[in-house]
């Protein structure tokens, strides 16, 4: 188990957003988080790399263990290097493609040849062939799908253990989405992935485990194949058969 989460309550100031969440995120698997919008799945994901620390007056209680270690005891900067994140909208820096991927390496004082690792990361993100001749052009000239894969390459470059994906395909067309799903599949050999999605087909296609959340609570969490075929909770069934949300 990469992440072990128990009794997680999360608060934005006085407002509670997550209630008693307990689940594990297994190593080298893809875990999908589904649920209607506003159910707290993004909040949960952003708790795992302490991104929510940036939001004033937010805090959580309960325990989140990364490789058995409480993440509150890990330095936030270090934690975020180990737990990478890809965001809903592609957000490349307005720098060159190369500099985007190299950014995390540079701040971490990487000693080897930058160019090698940049190439390696771009290959892993299945983007190398498309950009190898324009590495020093601005990342903003790329298409949305390419930008999102660039953001994945950028996250992979610092060699994280976990990759958190926060609705990474919501701004992309179906063809590009398929490409990213394919990419996730190849990544799970070396990384642990957790993906938030509002697209149930995507969760069914691409993940090993699925967690269904509703109003800040975890309703059901099991193997994807079983959750979608024989849901144990009527609310899960209602959601995946499209009766609400």
């Amino acid at each position: 188990m990469r992440f072990q989460i128990s009794n997680l309550d999360f608060f934005y100031g006085p407002k509670q957003a997550l209630f008693g969440l307990s689940l594990n995120i297994p190593t080298n698997h893809i875990t999908a988080l589904i649920g209607p919008s506003g159910c707290g799945k993004s909040t949960f994901l952003r708790t795992l790399n302490r991104m929510n620390d940036l939001i004033r007056h937010s805090h959580y209680t309960g325990e989140i263990l990364l490789d058995g270690q409480d993440i509150r005891k890990i330095d936030a900067v270090n934690l975020r290097r180990r737990v990478g994140m890809v965001f809903q909208r592609p957000n490349p820096f307005p720098k060159s493609i190369f500099d985007n991927v190299a950014y995390g390496l540079r701040i971490n004082g990487y000693q080897g040849r930058l160019a090698d690792l940049v190439e390696h990361s771009l290959r892993r993100a299945a983007l190398w062939d498309e950009v190898k001749d324009i590495l020093h052009k601005s990342a903003l000239i790329l298409s949305g799908g390419q930008q999102q894969r660039l953001c994945i390459a950028r996250a992979l470059a610092v060699d994280p253990e976990v990759l958190l994906l926060d609705e990474p395909c919501s701004a992309l067309d179906p063809v590009t989405t398929a490409k990213i799903e394919e990419l996730m599949f190849t990544l799970k050999d070396s990384y642990t992935l957790a993906i938030v999605t509002h697209n149930m087909q995507q969760a069914a296609r691409a993940s090993d485990f699925t967690a269904f959340m509703l109003d800040g609570r975890l309703i059901e969490h099991r193997e994807t194949s079983r959750l979608f075929t024989t849901p144990s909770d009527p609310r899960t069934e209602a959601y995946i058969t499209g009766r609400f949300g």
Partner: peptide, 18 residues
């Protein structure tokens, strides 16, 4: 400046100042 820019950097392990 979009918040995502700042978050992208921090999610790569940048400090606030970086």
């Amino acid at each position: 400046v979009p918040r995502e820019q700042r978050e992208a950097a921090m999610s790569l392990g940048a400090t606030r100042w970086e």
